[in-house]
Simulated scan of single mutants.
Amino acid sequence: MAPSSPIFRFAPSPNGRLHLGHAYSALLNQRLAARFAGELLLRIEDIDLTRCRPEFEQGIRDDLAWLGVSFAPAVRRQSQHFDDYRRALDRLEAMGLVYPCFCSRQQVKEAVGRCEAEGGIPWQRDPDGVPLYPGTCRGLDEAEARRRREAGEAHVLRLAMDRALARVAGESLAYRLFDEAGEECEIAVDPARWGDVVLARKDVPTSYHLSVVIDDALQGVSHVVRGEDIEAATEIHVLLQCLLDLPTPRYHFHRLLGDETGQKLAKSRLSRSLADLRADGATPEAIRRQLGFT
């Protein structure tokens, strides 16, 4: 049987309009999919039902069509697949690898502050600079935790990192990193750096980490091309793939684009959107040339 064609994906969130950084990522996915004779999929990552809106999704489609980026016909919209994520979460819970945490962000911050005061040294941070969860609810009595969940108390579901790593002891936790020429190397990962990460919330049965792993597996994604700001989080994804017996794609992490101040382009900083540039008279050809895609 002939090997299947590589499958790439571009996966924006409809919580604002695309900017030049998104354009670079989409165009790079398109170029590498073509170079490796693969297929490019569009995924709409809209698990955040508060911030994601239909008009932003339409804007994404308009911007990509204007830019000249085309996709395979089927589009996966995460908000339509919560059952897929819930099944994976249930499986992890059945393994004893997930526990409910009833701490608010403020309570976590206060607990970390107490730990720092008592220990006299800064609390350990994850690769994004966020203090690791101090484990306040990790030893909560199961009956008490069940009662509080059934009562509807707000909570998140965390991965018990120590138990998860014990579960995969002896397994090779690594992924294949590829460059634009197709050369590859193996990268070992250390998920313990992230501590007990959040996998779901009471009102949303998933998180970015869980949903992206499930989506890539169900869509048959073989090559993931995304910004270098997500590189460290791949450690969590490799662990989840191992726990759930899912394939690990090959990964490529591209540079991030900055503004005139050197800050990364971001919706949260109201970076100029493609729609703004288009309104000012920019053409798709000019944008592609600016980003190095001639």
Rank of each mutant, 00 (worst) to 15 (best):
G119S: 10
H254A: 12
D90E: 14
E93G: 06
E171M: 07
S104G: 07
P127L: 00
E231Q: 15
Q219I: 04
A166K: 08
K109W: 07
L246C: 06
G227D: 12
A34E: 11
R163Y: 09
D229S: 07
K202H: 15
I7V: 15
R9D: 08
A169C: 05
A11Y: 00
V69N: 02
R147T: 14
V238Q: 10
R17C: 10
R201D: 05
I230Q: 12
F36T: 04
R51A: 14
E55I: 07
W123V: 08
L257N: 09
L246V: 05
V224G: 07
S207N: 02
T234I: 08
E184C: 14
F10D: 01
P191Q: 07
L257C: 09
A174Q: 15
C185G: 13
V197N: 02
L274F: 11
V130D: 09
S5D: 14
I236V: 15
A233L: 10
A154C: 00
D203N: 13
Y24L: 13
E153V: 09
A192W: 08
I47R: 06
D216T: 08
T294Q: 14
C52V: 10
E186S: 15
Q30S: 14
C115Q: 15
E45I: 04
N29W: 05
L177M: 11
L97M: 11
R86Q: 15
L49M: 07
V204D: 09
N29Y: 01
R250P: 02
R158M: 10
D62F: 09
A286F: 11
E55P: 00
E228I: 12
R31L: 11
R255S: 11
R158N: 04
D280I: 00
Y175I: 12
R105E: 10
C242M: 04
G59S: 07
A37D: 15
L210I: 12
P131I: 10
V221L: 02
W194K: 08
C137S: 12
G152V: 09
A33Y: 01
Y99W: 05
L42Y: 00
L41G: 04
R288G: 01
I214N: 02
G129V: 02
A145Y: 06
H22P: 00
D141K: 11
G16N: 04
S79D: 03
E110C: 05
A2P: 15
D90W: 11
R226K: 08
T136P: 01
L89S: 12
D215Q: 13
I60R: 07
S13I: 03
L140F: 05
S4E: 13
P14F: 05
A192E: 14
G129E: 04
D179A: 01
F293D: 00
A200N: 13
Y99V: 03
D179T: 08
R9Q: 06
Q124C: 04
P3K: 13
H22T: 01
G96I: 04
E110I: 03
H19G: 11
H254T: 09
A192D: 02
A37T: 12
V189C: 10
R31V: 06
G68W: 02
E235W: 06
E118R: 15
E93F: 00
F82D: 01
W194L: 08
K267W: 03
L28A: 02
L20T: 07
A143F: 06
